[in-house]
Design a binder for these strands. Structure first.
Lengths: 181, 181
DNA sequence: GTTGCCATGTAAGGTGTTACATGATTTA
DNA sequence: TAAATCATGTAACACCTTACATGGCAAC
């Protein structure tokens, strides 16, 4: 459950309510959870039960009461241990590759359209990603090193997308589906 | 449920038993399922119920009886429709990025070790991938175009890994964690 | 004689998503 | 008047993984 550590990480930055973290998740690509309530709220209950976070109720006028969470020393230590633990290589699950594997049954025109639509999706994703970066170049920035790390994490997504586009170009060449129609 | 279409795809190649497909999944990186019985067997039951596959019992000496599945016309059409359907961009879920996001709390030595271990994992993955390719350069190969597609799908994984290594190099540079210790 | 392959399947549990319920408040 | 936002949470369901159960056969 990496979500647990993503939450601890956010709280190592500053206190947040569940709702605020939910929003951060849904806007970030590195903290890649969709930001759904059904994952965040139960996770917070678990973390509090384990003594890794504490919560404080915040009353604000007529709004429903919010719970603001912060990190305990045990939580801080748990996070530190996890960040130093053995990293794993992500496996890429690309339904598109499965699609391509059986795409020889399609005629030239349909295959070309498939490649076109995938390229379009990739470029759309790049635009969205750039917009997210433009709107939120933040992060904790507690040190120059941390600022650099967050910039690199943001870049990562763009690099993968560019890699994918280059590969798609190769597919076009090898199958005679070049851009010039 | 893309697994359903991966199965239909395999059966469009030639008939297979559930056990054989299970093994193919566990060995392939493009057909990225772990090859566990709990997914494959129930999926086959569902496909038969929908009339997309038919099964034939194969008796072979004293071994337990195997069920060999093949594609119906309806199954072939379902597969064709799916291969032509709108492709989606895979989202990369990298716990390592989450780890890096909070890694500024680590001292230089521990951070360097974290990067080293990630690079080691990446290189191990490349070796495994190459071994898989060496041992099984196959695929249906019903046409030159299909052979080309399968080669490109196989290359895809290696390209992503190389991209990841290049990016890791950038991280090293930017954080002063160059290879020269 | 213990491990591993053939071949089917079940059990249990973690992870993830969308959609809904509540109820007041601001915005169009 | 309809919608979006604030803020919590539940329900239902899809997906994925490891581990186990059965039972004969082959290899070391």
């Amino acid at each position: 459950m990496a979500l647990k550590y993503a939450i601890l990480g956010l709280l190592s930055w500053r206190p947040f309510s569940g709702y605020e973290m939910k929003k951060l998740f849904s806007e970030s690509t590195a903290l890649y959870w969709s930001g759904n309530s059904n994952q965040v709220y139960p996770a917070l209950v678990g973390l509090r039960k384990d003594g890794l976070v504490v919560s404080e109720v915040r009353q604000q006028g007529n709004y429903p009461p919010g719970k603001v969470y912060s990190l305990t020393d045990a939580g801080r230590e748990e996070l530190r241990e996890w960040t130093a633990s053995d990293p794993t290589v992500p496996q890429i699950r690309s339904p598109f590759l499965t699609q391509l594997a059986w795409a020889d049954q399609l005629d030239d025109e349909t295959l070309r359209s498939l490649l076109d639509r995938y390229e379009h999706e990739l470029r759309m994703r790049m635009l969205i990603q750039r917009e997210l970066v433009r709107r939120e170049p933040e992060g904790p920035a507690r040190s120059p090193r941390e600022t650099a790390l967050w910039a690199l994490i943001t870049e990562h997504d763009a690099e993968i997308l560019e890699c994918e586009l280059r590969w798609l170009g190769k597919v076009r060449e090898a199958t005679g589906m070049g851009v010039a129609s």
